[in-house]
């Protein structure tokens, strides 16, 4: 009952699914599995990949009713991200844009400074801007002020499947930022997705973890269940962790009742 009202809102658009398929590993089976078994309603799409004339155009494989989230991968500077966003619009990908500005070919870590600049420009142009960023509270605040629709901190380096390496910093963003916090990159297992949701993340983006699984549809389903469980736990309010062994209820202040 509650769940029907628990919606993810991004730039005025509402979604019931909190799983977003990332674009790291391109695979048509993966898209089908994400929609059918993980019930994804948002699918990320690298513009540089969609920018193709041939038979393998990924745009042709996106099922109807799915919101496309084109990303600016390949951009090294804010201006390049802006140009790719314009290209996405021209290709008919809609107004959502995930900003990725990466100036490092080895780790693919986002450049926060250029990301803020690109967010400012594209939000002003009417895009629904979802910036991928390294979890830094000051930068997250700048992104809010720049007009972002959500903030997308990385859990671990892209494709690493290492999970929530930045857990404590993501928690700070969840606590301090009013926009949805979507954990992007590094989520390698359903349990890690569940943990992100328990922390209060509004959604989780994953790709490699499912793309490289032995059974893609089964793993897609596992992610769906994990994300729902984590969300339900967050909404229910996690209980306190009882310390080992019995404890007197008020060992320090009990004397007040003596």
């Amino acid at each position: 009952m509650e769940n029907t009202r628990d919606k993810l809102t991004l730039g005025g658009h509402e979604f019931t699914s909190r799983f977003i398929l990332g674009s790291g590993k391109y695979n048509l089976d993966l898209i089908r599995a994400a929609v059918q078994y993980a019930q994804a309603q948002i699918i990320t799409l690298a513009v540089r990949r969609a920018n193709t004339a041939g038979a393998e155009n990924i745009l042709d494989y996106i099922p109807p009713g799915i919101t496309l989230l084109p990303n600016t991968s390949g951009a090294r500077k804010a201006e390049e991200a802006v140009r790719i966003a314009h290209l996405a619009r021209a290709l008919g990908c809609g107004d959502f844009i995930k900003i990725e500005v990466v100036h490092d070919s080895k780790y693919l870590l986002p450049d926060n400074y250029e990301t803020v600049k690109a967010t400012e420009i594209l939000a002003r142009e009417g895009f629904v801007v979802l910036p991928y960023m390294y979890p830094d509270l000051n930068v997250a605040r700048d992104l809010v002020n720049a007009g972002a629709a959500a903030v997308m901190p990385l859990g671990a380096p892209i494709g690493s499947n290492k999970g929530l390496c930045t857990r404590d910093f993501i928690k700070i963003l969840v606590d301090e930022i009013d926009l949805p916090i979507i954990v992007d990159a590094g989520i390698g297992r359903p349990s890690q997705a569940c943990e992100a949701m328990e922390l209060g993340a509004a959604a989780v983006m994953a790709n490699t973890a499912i793309a490289t699984a032995g059974d893609i549809p089964a793993m897609a389903g596992a992610f769906k269940n994990a994300i729902e469980a984590g969300r339900a736990a967050y909404r229910a309010g996690l209980g306190r962790v009882v310390e080992q062994g019995a404890a007197a209820s008020s060992p320090l202040t009990g004397f007040l009742n003596d």
């Binding site: 391109y26 695979n27 690298a46 513009v47 540089r48 990949r49 920018n51 193709t52 041939g54 393998e56 390949g74 951009a75 201006e79 390049e80 140009r83 790719i84 290209l87």
Partner: peptide, 11 residues
Amino acid sequence: LQPVMNDYVFV
């Protein structure tokens, strides 16, 4: 494996 013709955009 998957043959890919393009994964690049000139900016």
